[in-house]
């Protein structure tokens, strides 16, 4: 990773694989980095706030006398709704530019990933536009989430049949 390559090394390198590697090292050196520390602080604040908002709603629903699971479900619905409204108002992207992972990681990021292509591809029609493209970002999350849960569920079932759990 930390190989130092000058551009001279790159140009004078005859082997193209080595040259590419040296060039990539060189590019890494000359490309300035985002301040990772600043990003982290921003992600902490934005992500923290989103989770806290979730907690506020969750406690609210619990106070209504809902069970824990139902309260959690309503909580998710509210957060998704808020995220979609903020996306439609063009606020979520601005928030994301500032908050980075703070907006990607919470469930609101998932909702943003569903609604943003839906809006973008609206012009390409109800079926092939919205219908297909709705899932371009969320689709992989659903697929791999469901698949990994399925595999783990299968293991759980086997262990259960064997009376290991």
């Amino acid at each position: 990773m930390a190989n130092k390559s000058s551009i001279g090394d790159v140009i004078n390198e005859k082997d193209s694989t080595l040259r590419d590697k040296k060039y990539n090292d060189y590019v890494k050196q000359v490309t300035p980095k985002f301040s990772c520390f600043r990003n982290c602080i921003n992600a902490f604040i934005v992500g923290g706030i989103i989770c806290t908002i979730g907690q506020v709603f969750f406690n609210l629903f619990m106070n209504f006398g809902l069970g824990e699971e139902t309260a959690a479900a309503y909580n998710i619905i509210v957060l998704i709704l808020i995220s979609i409204i903020l996306t439609c108002l063009n606020i979520y992207p601005t928030l994301a530019k500032f908050g980075g992972a703070g907006t990607v990681v919470p469930i609101t990021g998932f909702a943003n990933g569903v609604v943003s292509p839906a809006l973008e591809y609206k012009t390409e029609g109800q079926v092939f536009g919205i219908g297909c493209k709705l899932f371009i970002i969320a689709g992989p999350v659903i697929l791999y989430g469901v698949f990994s849960a399925w595999v783990l569920g299968l293991i759980y079932w086997i262990l259960k049949v064997l009376h290991w759990v």
Binding site: C40, A43, I45, G48, G100, V105
Partner: peptide, 9 residues
């Protein structure tokens, strides 16, 4: 929540 986001960031 904040710390999870920092880790991912």
């Amino acid at each position: 929540g904040g710390l999870i986001c920092v880790g991912v960031q």
